[in-house]
Simulated assay, not measured.
Amino acid sequence: MGRWKQLEHNSVDDLIGETAYVGQGLGKAAVCELPQQIVQETDTRRVIVQLDAKNRASCQTLLSVGFSYDSEKHRYRLDW
């Protein structure tokens, strides 16, 4: 799991970096790409994301790329 474990406490905004690039669709592209990379490079078959519910834009992004919301555990998941 190596490098992916390092992402545990980072946000997509952290990965994008410069605030000038936030809000240009790069987060959605990253949310699409990261799970694919994790699955290709590890034996992981599920990606779980827990967000602050107030971050509606990120919640909508996860849903729009195929994550489902687990209302009991208050987190998003994507299974392969």
Rank of each mutant, 00 (worst) to 15 (best):
Q37A: 12
K73C: 08
T44P: 00
V39E: 05
V47W: 03
T42V: 07
E33I: 09
H74G: 05
V49G: 03
D70C: 11
C59A: 12
Q37D: 10
G27P: 06
Q40T: 13
A20S: 14
E41S: 11
F67T: 01
D70K: 07
D70M: 08
R45I: 11
T42P: 06
I48S: 10
V47D: 03
G23Q: 10
R56G: 06
D70L: 07
G2F: 00
T19L: 13
R3H: 02
I16P: 00
L51W: 00
G2H: 07
R3N: 07
R75D: 01
S58W: 01
Y69I: 08
R77F: 13
V31S: 02
A20D: 15
W4D: 01
L7Q: 10
K5N: 07
Q6C: 11
K73G: 08
L26K: 09
W80T: 13
D52H: 13
Q36I: 04
D43F: 08
R75A: 08
K28D: 02
Q50W: 05
E18T: 12
R56V: 13
V65P: 08
D43T: 14
D13M: 03
L63F: 07
H74K: 14
G25Y: 04
E18N: 15
T61R: 02
V39I: 11
G27Y: 01
A30F: 14
R46A: 08
V47K: 04
L26A: 04
G2P: 00
L63R: 06
L15S: 11
W80P: 03
K73I: 03
I16Y: 00
W4Q: 02
V49T: 06
T19W: 09
S58K: 02
Q24G: 12
N10G: 02
T61A: 14
Y21M: 11
R56Y: 09
I38A: 12
V49I: 15
R45K: 15
L7M: 11
L78K: 12
G66N: 06
H74L: 15
C59D: 05
G17I: 05
Q40K: 14
D13W: 04
V31R: 10
D43P: 01
C32T: 11
A30P: 00
P35C: 08
E18G: 12
K54R: 15
Y76V: 04
R75F: 05
L15R: 08
T42F: 08
V22F: 05
T19D: 13
R75L: 15
V47N: 01
L34F: 09
L34S: 05
R77G: 03
R75V: 02
I38N: 01
L62H: 04
